[in-house]
Nucleic acid binder design. Structure first.
Lengths: 216, 216
DNA sequence: GTCTATACTTGGATAGAC
DNA sequence: GTCTATCCAAGTATAGAC
């Protein structure tokens, strides 16, 4: 997996709706923007830096996207959509708390290596300095909290925890935790702590589960 | 010893070692840097922006700190030290889990309003783009994980959780959660979710506590 | 659609007067 | 220690040739 993404494309503009990965320039620019965000962070992601990364002319960014902010938002949208599809497909099988934790653990690993979450946190951190980004970044985060809420609801249904843990609040905390862990994880490259965190969570959920009866 | 100066003032240069807060220029610069980081984010915190915030000349930054990175690190050190003192004084009374959660809740509120955590997350996010910051930011984070670990250890001592929850791992998660919650909280300014999260945590800890006997 | 060239702005950093 | 002036690199964005 890892670099398996770079895109699903398919539904392009042109009439050539073949399955071949026709990489348009616009897509190449988005991909380069994502790579740059991951590697250099928001502050290092200038139009010129993106063009260097992708090996194309800097002016193309403005031709295709108008402003740098618009490109950045398109890139954010892209990862967000791609990852959401992946998350949904992975989580389809999950019915219990420990299922969910296990999947979260594997998917975090995937995200970490590919830098998907880093793009989010860099965009969030960056939107302080460019207020036009703020509202759009907020919108990009919402589906994630919704998604987490949905999963938590599903898994807490009928357990004694349902009355104790407001799904929306837990969802918020889980998303925040994801972001924070990724932030720290990337800072020093010591991934063992996150691993141990997920292992601990799995252990706990496995102990908890029998106390609840089958969650579903 | 990373810029051990930055200082507590008091022991100033001049013979006037009074208790009055003699604000040296160096301090004013650090304060302005913190304000700018909070308000404009890492990407918006240029030497010129800091000088505008503080109402002093831009060249002073380079006279007093050499480079912008060094100023930023001094500022990070400053908040980190200040907040650590505050945390330690607040937490001195805490003996139980629910004590700790309650204090964490109040202190988060304080941090949020003053933007203390934002400085951390902006510096972490920013260190991607300026690799010279990375190692120093890592060092600035360590005391926080240590501190959290210490607290968690203290409060878990002798409870059944002690065998289940590795203090270091939980500490890492708690710090990550703090960062992530602040990140999201500042993004859209909706502080109710964090509040509810802390309230939920308090409720849970209050329910859990009697099951453990006095934790201490 | 893509490239070159360029206008204009901001930023880090230094020199030198005061 | 502080200010003015300035150098130069880098950034966003646009115009116009191809």
């Amino acid at each position: 997996m890892l670099k398996a993404d770079a895109q699903d494309v398919s539904g392009g503009e042109g009439p050539t709706a073949t399955t071949t990965t026709t990489t348009t320039t616009k897509e190449r620019i988005v991909v380069a923007a994502l790579q740059t965000l991951r590697a250099e962070g928001f502050a290092g992601t200038s139009a010129r830096a993106i063009a260097r990364t992708g090996g194309f002319n800097q002016a193309l960014i403005f031709y295709h996207f108008g402003t740098l902010s618009d490109l950045l938002l398109a890139a954010l949208d892209r990862t967000s959509t791609d990852r959401m599809a992946r998350y949904r497909s992975m989580v389809a099988e999950a019915n219990s708390i420990s299922d969910l934790v296990g999947i979260a653990s594997r998917i975090y690993q995937e995200d970490l290596e590919a830098g998907h979450i880093t793009v989010l946190s860099e965009m969030i951190a960056g939107s302080l300095s460019r207020p036009d980004l703020g509202p759009e970044v907020v919108r990009a985060m919402e589906p994630w909290i919704d998604f987490a809420e949905e999963m938590i609801r599903k898994v807490l249904q009928g357990t004694p925890f349902a009355s104790l843990l407001p799904p929306r609040t837990v969802a918020f905390a889980v998303v925040a935790l994801y972001l924070g862990v990724d932030l720290l994880d990337h800072l020093d490259g010591d991934h063992s702590r996150a691993e141990e965190m997920f292992q601990t969570a799995e252990k706990i959920s496995e102990i908890l589960e029998p106390m609840l009866g089958a969650a579903r």
